[in-house]
C-alpha cells in the first residue's frame, strides 16, 4: 500500500486483566495491549496484569475472534535484574504474541538479535519524537511501529509520517502527562520507586487518603501532601504532577498540570489523514466498565468516520480525570 492510501486505523485497547481483555475484544478492539505481572510493564499495580497461563489463554481468545495481542514489556530494564525483562520477552515470543512493545534500547537489541522475526513496537516510553530518533530504531532494531509521545501536533505527526518507514500509533483517549515520556522521576524522587523502571506511577503502597475535620479529602504520597480536595470538587489521580501546591502568590495551585484526560474524538479524521495507523486508548489500570464504554464508543466513532459520518461520544466525559478533557499538544503547543 502506498503512503497516500488511507485505511481505517486499528483500535488498540488496554487490558489489565483477562476479563478486561475479553471485554475489550467483545467491545470491538482490533488489538489489545497488556503485560505480565511484575516490573516489566509500565502498569505494575497490585492485582493487575497476567500470568503466563493467563496470557496464553487470552491470546487464544483474541485469535479466535480475529484480534491481535500486543505484549507490553515497556519499562526500563535495570542492572542487575536484566534477566527478568529477558525472560518476559522469551515468554512472550514462546506464546506467539503479535508484537512486543519495547521501550528499553537494550531490550530492543535483545529482541531484534535473538528473535529477528518478532515484531517490535516502540513504546511511548521510549520518547522517540523525531524522524532521526525513530529512524535510528528502525535501522538498528527493525521496529515496525512507533507509539508517539503526546507532545506532537498533528501537523508534526504528518511530517514524521512522510519521513519514516514504520507505522505510527497515537494515543486518542485517557490519562495524559506532560513530561518527556519515559523519563519521569517524580515518583522516584518521593517514594524510591520509579515509574519507568519499576512500572509504577505513585505506587499504591505509598498513597494514603485521609479526611480532615471539614470532610476535605487529603491525598498523600509518602509523607508529602499532594492535594486537599474540598467537598464538591472533582478528584484526580494521586500523582505529584497533578497535585496542588502553595507557590509564590498562589495557594492550592496546579504547579505542573491539572487533572485532565486526553480526548481526540473530534481530531480522529485529522489523525487518520496524517497517516496514523493505530489509535490507542490508555487505561490498563481502569475497570471493565471503563473499557466497555470507551472501546465501544471509539469503535462506533472510527466506523462512523469511515462512513463519512460525525460521531457523538460526549458520554465519555464522565470517565475523564477531574471531569475535564483536552486535545493536548495534538491541537496546540499550549494546552493549559
Amino acid at each position: 500500500m502506498t503512503k497516500s492510501a488511507q485505511k481505517i486505523p486499528e483500535l488498540i485497547c488496554p487490558a489489565g486483566t483477562p476479563a478486561s481483555l475479553r471485554t475489550a475484544i467483545d467491545a470491538g478492539a482490533d488489538a489489545i495491549y497488556c503485560g505480565f505481572i511484575g516490573p516489566t510493564n509500565a502498569r505494575n499495580f497490585p492485582g493487575l496484569n497476567f500470568t503466563i497461563k493467563q496470557m496464553e489463554q487470552s491470546l487464544n481468545y483474541a485469535r479466535e475472534r480475529g484480534a491481535k495481542l500486543l505484549c507490553a514489556i515497556n519499562s526500563f530494564a535495570t542492572s542487575p535484574n536484566i534477566d527478568i525483562w529477558k525472560k518476559a520477552i522469551d515468554d512472550a515470543v514462546f506464546l506467539g504474541v503479535d508484537a512486543i512493545i519495547i521501550a528499553d534500547i537494550g531490550m530492543a537489541k535483545y529482541v531484534s538479535e535473538k528473535y529477528p522475526n518478532m515484531r517490535i513496537h516502540l513504546s511511548v516510553q521510549a520518547g522517540a519524537s523525531s524522524v532521526e530518533a525513530i529512524n535510528f530504531y528502525i535501522d538498528r532494531f527493525n521496529i515496525k511501529r512507533v507509539v508517539l509521545p503526546r507532545i506532537l501536533t498533528i501537523s508534526e505527526i504528518k511530517k514524521i509520517h512522510a519521513a519514516i518507514s514504520c507505522e505510527i500509533e497515537a494515543f486518542i483517549f485517557g490519562n495524559i502527562g506532560m513530561m518527556a515520556e519515559g523519563r519521569c522521576s517524580l515518583t522516584n524522587y518521593v517514594s524510591g520507586k520509579s515509574t519507568n523502571m519499576d512500572g509504577v506511577c505513585s505506587p499504591a503502597e505509598f498513597v494514603r487518603y485521609e479526611e480532615d475535620e471539614n470532610h476535605n479529602l487529603i491525598s498523600r504520597l509518602g509523607e508529602y501532601m499532594i492535594d486537599c480536595i474540598e467537598c464538591g470538587q472533582s478528584a484526580g489521580y494521586p500523582t505529584i504532577c497533578k497535585g496542588r501546591y502553595n507557590v509564590k502568590h498562589r495557594n492550592g495551585y496546579y504547579a505542573f498540570e491539572e487533572p485532565i484526560s486526553l480526548n481526540l474524538t473530534y481530531l480522529l479524521p485529522d489523525l487518520i489523514k496524517a497517516g496514523v495507523s493505530a489509535l490507542k486508548i490508555e487505561g490498563r489500570q481502569r475497570s471493565k466498565s471503563y473499557i466497555r464504554e470507551v472501546v465501544s464508543s471509539f469503535r462506533k466513532a472510527v466506523d462512523a468516520y469511515a462512513r463519512g459520518e460525525q460521531p457523538n461520544i460526549d458520554n465519555l466525559l464522565a470517565l475523564t480525570e477531574g471531569h475535564k478533557q483536552t486535545e493536548g499538544a495534538f491541537k496546540s503547543k499550549i494546552w493549559r
Binding site: P46, P203, A204, E205, V207, R208, Y209, E210, E211, L217, I229, C231, G232, Q233, S234, A235, G236, Y237, P238, P259, Q285, R286, S287, S289, Y290, E293, A318, L319, T320, E321, G322, H323
Partner: peptide, 18 residues
C-alpha cells in the same frame, strides 16, 4: 468504573490504598 466514582467523589476510600 471505580476511578470515575472516585473522580466524582461518589465513593470514599481511606487507609491502605494498595
Amino acid at each position: 468504573d471505580s476511578d470515575a466514582l472516585f473522580f466524582n467523589r461518589d465513593i470514599k476510600i481511606l487507609g491502605d490504598s494498595e
